[in-house]
Amino acid sequence: MEVHVVNHGGEPTGVGEIPLPPVAPALTNAIFAATGHRIRRPPIADRLRVMMTV
Rank of each mutant, 00 (worst) to 15 (best):
G36V: 07
R38Q: 09
I39F: 11
A24T: 13
P22W: 02
R40I: 09
R38P: 05
A34F: 10
R38L: 11
R49W: 09
L48G: 01
A26M: 14
M52Y: 10
T13D: 10
R38N: 07
R47S: 13
R47D: 08
G16M: 07
R40D: 12
R49L: 15
T35H: 05
P12I: 09
H8S: 05
L48M: 11
E11T: 05
P25E: 03
M52T: 11
E17V: 07
P25W: 01
D46F: 09
G16D: 07
L27Y: 03
P42I: 03
A45I: 05
A26K: 14
I18M: 08
G9Q: 01
V15F: 14
I39Q: 00
I44F: 13
V50N: 09
N29G: 15
I31K: 06
V50A: 15
N29Q: 14
G36P: 12
V50G: 10
I18N: 12
R40V: 11
R49A: 12
T35V: 07
P43C: 02
E17D: 10
G14P: 01
R41K: 13
L48C: 11
P12L: 10
F32Y: 15
A45K: 14
A34K: 14
P12V: 12
P22E: 07
G9C: 06
F32P: 01
E17F: 06
H37T: 09
P25L: 04
G14N: 06
H8Y: 04
H37V: 14
M51A: 13
L27A: 11
G10S: 05
R47C: 10
D46H: 09
P19A: 12
P25N: 02
H37G: 00
P43N: 07
R40E: 15
I31P: 04
E17R: 14
A24Q: 02
V50L: 14
G16V: 05
G9W: 04
L20P: 01
G9H: 06
L20N: 15
E17Q: 11
T13S: 13
P19R: 09
D46Q: 11
R41F: 14
L20Q: 11
A26V: 13
R49K: 12
E11S: 04
P43E: 04
E17G: 11
I31L: 15
T35D: 05
A45V: 12
V15K: 13
P12R: 11
T35M: 04
M51V: 10
E17M: 08
A33K: 12
L20I: 09
M52P: 00
G16Q: 09
P21G: 04
E11W: 09
T28Y: 03
A24S: 12
I44Q: 00
G9T: 08
A33S: 14
N29Y: 04
I44R: 01
A30Y: 08
I39R: 00
H8L: 11
I31A: 00
P42H: 02
L48D: 02
V15T: 14
P22D: 07
A34E: 13
P22K: 05
G36E: 06
R49P: 00
I39H: 00
M52K: 08
N29L: 13
P43Y: 01
P25S: 02
I18W: 03
P19Y: 03
I18K: 15
I31H: 04
N29P: 00
G9M: 06
A33W: 05
H8E: 06
G9S: 03
G10M: 07
G36Q: 02
I18Y: 09
T28R: 10
A26D: 00
G16C: 05
D46W: 04
I18T: 12
R40P: 00
G10T: 03
V23I: 15
T13I: 08
